[in-house]
Design a protein around this nucleic acid. Structure first.
Lengths: 246, 246
DNA sequence: TGACATTTCATTGTCCAGCAAAACGAGTCG
DNA sequence: CGACTCGTTTTGCTGGACAATGAAATGTCA
C-alpha cells in the first residue's frame, strides 16, 4: 500500500483514506485480512495507536471488523443492507435535524420517492406484503392506540409497500428516508378524525395494490401527501397562535 | 454523560455510542464543544487513547470536528449536505459492489427515483439548470470524447435534472444513487450509435423541462431506462459469448 | 490411532508517560 | 498603537508495556 506525505492532515485520517481507497477500488475484497496493527505501523511508519485510530475510523463505517486472538485481525467487512440501512437512517436523521429542513421539503421528498415505488409494487406485490399492510391498517384502527404506536405502524405499512416493489436497492433508499422522517412526523399530534382519513387512504392503497393498480396507488399517495402537509400546516398554525396568546 | 459497564464490547465503541446518542437526542447541539480528551478520560474512567479512538469513530461519520490549540477541542459538527452526500455515495458504492446487485436491479431503482423528480423539475427548473443540461448535451456530442468523460457528463446532466426539482433532500438522496451507479454504468462500452440515442433522449428531457412538461420528462426517462437496460443486456450477452469461445 | 486437555503465541484491547505542534491570550517592548 | 514573545491549553503522535483472547500446535491418555 502507499505511504503518506507528512504535510497536510491527520496521519490517522490519511491512513484510513488509503485503506478505504484500497477497499473501494477492489484491491482489498470482502473477507481479506488486513496486515496486523504492528505490520501496518511499520508499513506506514507511524505508531500503533495512530494505526488503531485509522482502523477505528473504518470500523465506524462498518468497512472492517476486528477480531482478537491468534488468527484475528482486521477483516474487510461485507456491507450488508442492514448496515447500510442503519447508517442511512442516522445520517438522514442528523441531516434533517441539523439543517432546519422544513416539514414541507422533507415531506415532498419522501412522498416523491415513495410514489416511485407505486407501479413496481402493484406489479410485484406478494400475498404477504398485502397481509402486512392489512394487519397494520387493522392495528391503526384500534382505539386507545398511542400516537407513537400509530406512527410506528404507519412506518411499517409504508415499508411493506416499498418492499412490495421487490427491489432491495429501492427498499434500502426508501426505508431510510421514511424512517428518518418519523421524528418529524411525530411532531404532529394525530386526532381521531385525522387518523380516520389516513387509514382510509391506507386501505385504498392496499386495495389498489391487491388490484395491481399502480396508478391508483400513486394517486392515493398524492392525496396522502396533500393531507399530511395540510395537517402539518394547521398544527403549526395552531402552535403559533398558542405562542401568540401566551 | 453516562458511564460504561465493563462487560460487553469495546470501550471505545461504547463511548462513541454514548456521545453519538447525546448528539442525536439533542443533549449536544451543533457548535457545542465536547470536554477535552483528558476530561473525557476522567469522566469515563478510561485512558486517553481509548477516548481518542472513540472520537475518531465519530469524526469518521463527520459528527464532530477537532481543532488543535488552546481553545480547540472537539466540536459537534453541522452535518452538511455535502458531507451526507459523500457518505451516501461511498455507502451505496460499497453496497452495490459487495452484494452482487444485478445491473437491472440497480438501474431500475435509479430510474424509478429519478422519475420521482420529473414533475417537480418541470415545475421549478431555473434557467441555469437548463443551461447546465444543454452544456452537458453539447459536450456529450463532441467526437473523440472518452468513455469516462461521457459518463461523467452523463452524471452531471442527470444531477442538474435532479437539482432542478429544487428540493435539497431529494437531491441528496438521488445524487447519491446516481453517482454510486457510475462504476456500474462504466462497465458498458458506449458505441457511437448508442451515444447518439442517449443524447437524443437527453435533448428530449431538456426540451420537456424547458416546456415544463413533467409527463414527457418521465416518459423520456422511461425510454432511457429501457434503452440502458437493453444495451447492458446485449453487452453482457456479447461478453458471455466471448468467454464461451475462449 | 483417536479424542481430549494443555500449552503456545500472534493479535487486538487498554493503559501510561511524555514530547511536539498548534492556536489563542496576555503581557512586553519598540 | 503595533509587533513580538511567552505561556497555556489542547490535540497529534510516539514508544513501550501488559492483559485478554482465541485458534493452532502440542501433549496426554485410552
Amino acid at each position: 500500500m502507499k505511504i503518506d506525505p507528512n504535510n497536510p492532515a491527520d496521519l490517522s485520517a490519511q491512513i484510513a483514506a488509503a485503506i478505504r481507497d484500497a477497499i473501494v477500488s477492489g484491491k482489498l475484497i470482502v473477507g481479506d485480512r488486513l496486515p496486523s496493527e504492528a505490520e501496518l505501523s511499520e508499513q506506514f511508519e507511524v505508531s500503533r495507536p495512530t494505526v488503531r485510530e485509522a482502523l477505528k475510523r473504518l470500523a465506524a463505517q462498518s468497512l472492517i471488523r476486528t477480531q482478537r486472538g491468534a488468527f484475528g485481525g482486521a477483516f474487510v467487512n461485507r456491507l450488508s443492507y442492514a448496515d447500510a440501512h442503519a447508517q442511512q437512517i442516522t445520517t438522514s436523521t442528523l441531516l434533517l435535524g441539523m439543517n432546519d429542513v422544513s416539514f414541507d421539503t422533507a415531506c415532498e421528498a419522501r412522498f416523491a420517492m415513495e410514489r416511485a415505488c407505486a407501479r413496481l409494487a402493484a406489479e410485484r406485490r406478494a400475498p404477504d406484503h398485502l397481509a402486512t399492510m392489512r394487519a397494520e391498517i387493522t392495528r391503526q384502527g384500534q382505539p386507545g392506540l398511542s400516537d407513537e404506536a400509530f406512527c410506528a405502524s404507519d412506518v411499517a405499512f409504508h415499508r411493506a409497500l416499498v418492499d412490495a416493489a421487490g427491489n432491495p436497492v429501492l427498499s434500502y433508499q426508501l426505508a431510510g428516508a421514511v424512517e428518518a422522517m418519523q421524528p418529524l412526523m411525530n411532531m404532529i399530534t394525530f386526532t381521531a378524525r385525522s387518523r380516520e382519513a389516513i387509514i382510509a387512504l391506507h386501505a385504498r392503497i392496499a386495495d389498489a395494490a391487491e388490484a395491481r393498480d399502480g396508478a391508483d396507488i400513486e394517486a392515493a399517495l398524492q392525496e396522502l401527501e396533500g393531507y399530511t402537509r395540510e395537517l402539518a400546516r394547521s398544527v403549526f398554525a395552531a402552535r403559533r397562535t398558542e405562542r401568540g396568546v401566551e
